[in-house]
Write a protein that binds this DNA or RNA. Structure first.
Length: 655
RNA sequence: GGGGUUGUAGCUCAGUCGGUUAGAGUGCCAGCCUGUCACGCUGGAAGUCGCGGGUUCGAGUCCCGUCAGCCCCGCCA
């Protein structure tokens, strides 16, 4: 049977959009075969395109012999062109958008064949493991779930571009090949062929360019740009990711924030959400004190409380010692109300202890009010009145569970912040159907780096110090606040920005504070210092993490689900096998030498029991066929559809 | 760099205390079937138990190493 050509076959309708109104119309459709249901002399085919699925039908009485033969040759994922008349179904399928109608075939073109997919192409209970999904991403992306996610992503970027255009922003592209700045994340480097020994760096963000565009007088800049950071990955971190990057002149922090709130208002409905304006503002200090996190999830209202003073005269040494420590160490607690909390088991508490220990914390003393009354790991030190006082201090009524942590603020924040999230999730207090936006503001300007034994910039070294803290820049850097703000959504940092330094003198003081000398500053950031000297306007901006934002809008827990071709946690692409070894010639041109002998990996597949003339077309199919050591493959030779039994044998390896 | 976890048929998984020929569902192939839509019925093919080593009379199962996926800590100005 010959493979058909597309010539003179024009699509008239989208599969997923056929309705009762189309009854009687002759239609031409294109798409992939989702499923064949062959009842003998009655055959159904579900035809899928990006708009949905429609049922095709033909039977022995009405269809020509040739058409029936074609129908019987069709297998899953074949590419088809269908011609027929839209008709009402005898019994409709309420699970399909097109369930009222079907297409009675008059003609069917087989435009291409397909090997049996190595992973399920339909959304169902059996989702393949992720390594296979990534290896065969082009098939995985056919699934409705991923099609929906990428369409959502496209909606977000469209809304974003329209929104900022409406607010007078200008889209400017900044270089991908730039200068390496060792401050911050590790750079991805690109060797220069023309300049032996020199390297470009891929941008971690277009930070300096967008500031220079303000000096250049653009006033409002937007770019949806790719950024690169050579650091270890997480569920919400990829080595390359997309940022919605903006910068504005003559603005205060609140002006930038308001602009972003307006965008969130337009984007939230994509997830069926509404954004309440203005968003809450929470100083960094309070976020750490109450939620133990600089990106608190406010869907749960439980706060960390300081109960140190309650134990000033306690017999429980651990707590009293903290009370005696003049604030060096504190006793802090979380209280969760409810029956479920009151019934939290010993085993579950033990698991929680492990979490705390993993974070470098000590044990987690607890107090529990449940069906069996009061229980606590320090019960023998608590009498009746003390228990009552504890309850009052925690604001506890009825049943519930209190978890305590003792130690420095940094440690108890880290531990209780994590415990808070886990218990909130366990007790069903993180409402999945809610969006809680939040600005965390007044971040510290510096943090102490143990590794470098000096202060480093918390955000980046171009962040403006808080005007009230300017005097402390030299005297008490650790206490300086920055005009920096993060946008937090449901416990995820979806954006961060700041008002920048536009005064060359302040910028110099800033560099001095983080131990960058004048010469080094000149050397690394001379262009910026120059720019600040020629009339830089007050300016500031923000960058939104597009991947995380879309992830939250899509309601998935992983940014790989909203990226077409993501990398694995080991920063590899399983589909293309990047990064890969390159020719010695390429390395020579780039003036590079490898430390250890280069490993060349190559393999060639041959197939036994396949006629010689089929070897070449089979080789093209090898990626798919490799999954089945022995299989029947369908392939095309000179436009002819043929089936062959194949047996895989390993090819020679080359050194 | 560190910790945890997973790896058995194309796919998703089960496999007890170390013991006969390693199973199920699904997919695939073949036959039958005129209203299916998770079609049904019958039959069939399909396994380097991730890889390497060790313990043992005997290893999918125990031990060591290693590779890969995922999650977390460090890291991510």
């Amino acid at each position: 049977m010959k493979l058909d050509r597309l010539d003179d076959f024009q699509r008239t309708h989208k599969n997923g959009e056929l309705r009762l109104a189309h009854i009687g119309e002759t239609v031409r459709l294109l798409g992939w075969c989702r499923k064949v249901r062959n009842l003998g002399s009655l055959i159904f085919i579900d035809l899928r395109d990006r708009w949905g699925v429609v049922q095709l039908v033909a039977n022995e009485e009405t269809a020509s012999k040739e058409l029936l033969a074609r129908l019987k040759a069709v297998r899953g994922e074949f590419v088809l062109g269908a011609e027929g008349m839209v008709a009402q179904r005898e019994s409709k399928n309420p699970n399909m958008a097109t369930g009222d109608v079907e297409v009675r075939l008059t003609d069917l073109k087989i435009l291409n064949v397909a090997a049996t997919p190595p992973i399920p192409v339909e959304d169902g209970d059996n989702e393949a493991n992720e390594d296979l999904r990534l290896k065969f991403r082009f098939l995985d992306l056919r699934r409705e779930k991923l099609q929906r996610n990428l369409r959502l992503r496209s909606e977000v970027t469209n809304i974003t571009r329209n929104y900022f255009r409406a607010h007078d922003f200008i889209d400017v592209e900044t270089p991908i090949l730039g200068r390496s700045t060792p401050e911050g994340a590790r750079d991805y480097l690109v060797p220069s062929r023309v300049h032996p020994g020199d390297f470009f760096a891929l941008p971690q963000s277009p930070q300096l360019y967008k500031q220079l565009l303000q000096v250049a007088g653009f006033e409002r800049y937007i770019q949806i740009c790719r950024c690169f950071r050579d650091e270890d990955l997480r569920a919400d971190r990829q080595p390359e990711f997309t940022q919605i990057d903006i910068e504005m002149s003559f603005v205060r922090a609140v002006d930038v924030q308001t602009m972003i709130e307006g965008l969130m208002l337009e984007v939230a409905p994509l997830a069926g959400q509404t954004a309440q304006l203005p968003f809450r503002r929470l100083p960094y200090k309070d976020a750490m004190e109450w939620y133990g996190s600089d990106k608190p999830d406010l869907r749960c209202s439980t706060r960390i409380q300081d109960v140190t003073s309650l134990f000033a005269a306690s017999d429980f040494n651990l707590f009293r010692a903290a009370a005696d420590s003049q604030g060096q160490r504190r006793v802090r607690a979380l209280f969760f109300a409810g029956e479920q909390a009151g019934a939290y088991s010993r085993k579950q508490l033990d698991a929680l202890q492990d979490v705390a220990k993993h974070l470098g914390g000590g044990g987690l003393p607890y107090a529990k009010w449940g069906k069996e009354g009061f229980a606590s790991s320090f019960k023998k030190f608590v009498d009746g009145p003390q228990e009552a006082a504890l309850k009052t201090a925690l604001g506890a009524e009825g049943e519930g569970l209190a978890i305590f942590a003792v130690g420095t603020d940094a440690l108890t924040s880290k531990v209780l912040g994590e415990v808070r999230l886990r218990l909130a999730r366990a007790f069903g207090q993180l409402d999945e159907s809610r969006f809680e936006f939040l600005w965390v503001v007044d971040f510290p300007l510096f943090e102490w780096s143990e590794e470098n034994q000096r202060f480093v910039a918390c955000h980046h070294p171009f962040t403006s110090p808080h005007p009230d803290d300017m005097e402390m820049l030299e005297t008490n850097p650790g206490a300086c606040r920055a005009v920096a703000y993060d946008l937090v959504l449901n416990g995820f940092e979806v954006g961060g920005g700041s008002i920048r330094i536009h005064d060359a003198e302040v910028q110099s003081r800033m560099f001095r504070a983080i131990g960058i000398g004048e010469e080094e500053a000149r050397n690394k950031f001379g262009f910026l210092l120059d720019a600040l000297a020629y009339g830089a306007p007050p300016h500031g901006g923000l960058a939104l993490g597009l991947d995380r934002l879309v992830m939250l809008l899509a309601g998935v827990d992983n940014i790989r689900e909203v990226i077409a071709f993501p990398k694995t946690a080991q920063a590899r692409c399983l589909m293309t096998d990047a990064p890969n070894a390159v020719d010695a010639k390429q390395l020579r041109e780039l003036h590079l030498q490898l430390e250890s002998p280069q490993q060349y990996r190559a393999g060639v597949m041959f197939f036994e029991s396949v006629p010689a003339e089929l070897q070449a077309p089979m080789a093209a199919l090898r990626t798919l066929s490799m999954n089945q050591p022995t299989s029947t493959s369908t392939l095309v030779l000179d436009g002819e559809i043929v089936k062959v039994e194949t047996t895989r044998i390993p090819g020679p390896e080359f050194e």
